Simulated scan of single mutants.
Amino acid sequence: MLAESLSSMDEAITESVTDWADCPVETTTELDGGQVGSVHRVDLADDRRVVVKTADTDLRIEAEMLAHLRSVGGLTVPDVYHATADLLILEFVPGDSAISPAVERDLAARLADLHATETDQFGFPFDTLTGRYRQPNPWTDDWATFFGDERLGHAAACAREEGVLPPDLAERLGALGDDLPVLLDHDPTPSLIHGDVWSENLLTDGESVRAFLDPACYYADREVELAYAEWAGVAGETFFERYRAVAGVDSGYESRRHVYRLYPLLTHLRHFGSEYLDPLDATLETLGY
């Protein structure tokens, strides 16, 4: 995308970036990935190049998630240069979002490494965000309880309050929630996940993943990550061949993945509207609800 005029970024934000950099802004380019807020590449007069993000959410949470993924999980993420509630300045990492077989293999290995970061409870040190919405993360011993209460139950209740989830689907989700101890019939170890692995949150170079963006992280059943990446189209047969070789996949995943897809479907329903009602209905039918 070609550089745009300074007017493409809010004047007050341009001023804030100038103050932080102690250097004038020369050009800005709007980048993809601004579904929540806006994202710009900013070229400074001293030849530095950064990414500037603004949003209605508290961007300090994203900065803290990136720091956790880097320092605890060892994931390759952009450096955070500056973070306030409404302004995030990040390292610019060149790349695109193309997913080749080589990228799938690299993605599998990197996620397997991330998932090897484990703890003794499900949750996170603080509530995180998925897009603009809060993810509650109280430390919880039992996975089915955590996923039922803090993911499916919480998202469904919010969607009902927002008027986007019809009562019949809410009732079916409630019935499934009651059965989660049976549906999630294995004993996962709490593993650190990125939480939002799809093409726009990956910077790739044709051979590998150069950086992971926009996390929604917490300690979870690692299959949550696998199910989402598969649903989002970045984890195909090549990915799973490598992931199985490196980390293994428990028996029963083929059934559990449909349960785990319900959460991103609810999240997408809340963000983007009724186009996700039919996939939500179909997934519940697949599961027998």
Rank of each mutant, 00 (worst) to 15 (best):
M1W: 07
L2C: 06
E4H: 08
L6S: 05
E11K: 09
T18C: 10
T28A: 11
T29V: 14
E30Q: 12
G33V: 02
Q35I: 07
V36F: 05
H40G: 14
H40V: 05
R41K: 13
R41C: 00
V42L: 01
V42Q: 06
L44D: 11
A45C: 10
R48N: 08
V50K: 07
V50E: 02
K53D: 08
T54L: 09
L59P: 01
R60Y: 00
R60G: 12
I61T: 14
A63V: 13
M65V: 05
H68I: 11
L75N: 02
L75R: 13
V77H: 01
V77W: 08
H82L: 07
H82G: 07
T84R: 05
A85Q: 13
D86A: 00
L87T: 10
L87G: 10
I89R: 08
I89S: 06
E91Y: 07
F92S: 14
P94R: 13
S100R: 04
S100G: 04
P101L: 03
P101A: 05
P101W: 03
E104C: 05
R105Y: 08
R105W: 01
D106I: 02
A109Q: 14
R110V: 06
R110A: 13
L111W: 05
L111M: 13
L114Q: 04
A116Q: 13
A116G: 09
Q121W: 07
F122L: 09
F122P: 10
F126V: 07
D127A: 15
L129P: 01
L129H: 02
G131F: 11
Y133T: 15
R134S: 04
W139P: 04
W143H: 15
T145F: 01
E150G: 02
G153D: 10
C158K: 04
C158V: 15
E161I: 11
E162V: 12
V164T: 07
L165A: 02
P167L: 03
P167D: 15
D168N: 03
R172E: 12
R172T: 10
L176T: 02
G177P: 10
G177K: 14
G177A: 11
D178L: 14
L183R: 15
L184Q: 08
T189Q: 13
L192C: 13
D196F: 09
V197H: 11
S199K: 12
L202V: 03
S208L: 09
P215R: 15
D221L: 13
E225C: 02
E225I: 12
G233I: 00
G233R: 05
V234A: 12
V234M: 15
F239H: 03
Y243A: 07
A245S: 14
A247E: 01
G248W: 07
D250M: 03
E254T: 04
R257T: 06
R257A: 06
R261F: 03
L265E: 09
L265Y: 03
L269E: 09
L269T: 04
R270E: 15
H271D: 02
H271Q: 14
Y276W: 14
D278M: 04
P279R: 12
P279Q: 07
P279D: 05
L280P: 12
T286Q: 14
T286L: 06
Y289R: 07
